[in-house]
């Protein structure tokens, strides 16, 4: 049976892991490659790098991290942040990324998603959607630039449009929940999951293992992404998987 995936996410800035990582056994806990190796040893199903570097001159540092990580781990790696052109996608894939995540550039130019998925295959193209509940609570709006700019797009419709444009997967982050530890926006997750026929990764808000469980059950997500609970070693990936297995969720132990 297809397992639900547990995906740790590393936010990388200027080549370093942000969020004051607390891996005690590591020589260099800010080195994304070292952290990636720990997650591999813990049995992570995939890894996600999000480059939050503002300047593009630091791009080379990210590529170096991707190359080293791809050499050190044998699990799929998704890389996102500042991906704007087909050439950006090409460079990340050749550096060793298995999938590339596109966010703001997809909103600016949806054809970019179509071009990239035609050229490299749908399975390599992830569209990241940052969504925030509208003031009237009736729907969710897509935001770009790390949640700063409202787009007026409905998140559920946008996800379906991106599927039609060739996205192979949706990485769905609730801006309302992100950074809090009170769980995913399950209504948002479920609404998107029920509206598309491509896998959806739930993101934003995990504080407990129960939240992961809710993400795949109530939220119907195909994969669950979390950063802080794994960074701060509140839980290891193994603990998360054993918890889910005990509650009847198919996971790869």
């Amino acid at each position: 049976m297809l397992a639900k995936r547990i995906i740790p996410c590393l936010d990388v800035k200027g080549g370093r892991v942000v969020k004051g990582v607390a891996f005690v056994d590591l020589k260099d806990a800010g080195d994304p490659v070292e952290v990636a190796k720990v997650y591999e040893a813990q049995g992570a199903d995939e890894l996600c790098f999000l480059d939050i570097t503002a300047s593009s001159d630091e791009r080379e540092i990210l590529l170096d991290i991707v190359r080293h990580t791809a050499d050190e781990v044998s699990m799929p790696v998704t890389v996102g942040g500042g991906v704007r052109t087909v050439e950006d996608v090409q460079i990340l894939l050749s550096a060793g990324a298995d999938k590339v995540s596109i966010n703001t550039a997809a909103v600016n130019r949806p054809e970019f998603v179509r071009d990239a998925s035609r050229q490299f295959g749908s399975s390599t193209i992830v569209v990241a959607i940052d969504a925030k509940r509208s003031p009237d609570q009736a729907h969710w709006e897509v935001y770009t630039h790390g949640g700063r700019n409202a787009t007026g797009l409905d998140a559920v419709e946008w996800a379906a449009k991106m599927e039609a444009y060739g996205a192979g997967e949706i990485l769905l982050t609730s801006m309302d929940q992100d950074g809090k530890t009170t769980g995913y926006d399950l209504e948002l997750t479920r609404a998107v999951c029920e509206h598309v026929r491509i896998p959806v990764i739930a993101s934003g808000g995990v504080g407990t293992l129960e939240h992961l469980y809710e993400g795949v059950t109530t939220g119907k997500a195909d994969a669950v992404l979390a950063a802080s609970i794994f960074h701060y070693q509140t839980y290891s990936i193994q603990e998360a998987k054993h918890y889910l297995a005990k509650r009847g969720i198919p996971v790869r132990l």
């Binding site: 297809l2 397992a3 639900k4 995936r5 749908s122 399975s123 026929r197 896998p199």
Partner: peptide
């Protein structure tokens, strides 16, 4: 087949 399955088939399977 186009039914309830998510396609691509993506992830760890047995």
């Amino acid at each position: 087949p186009k039914n309830d399955l998510k396609v691509p088939h993506m992830g760890w399977n047995q």
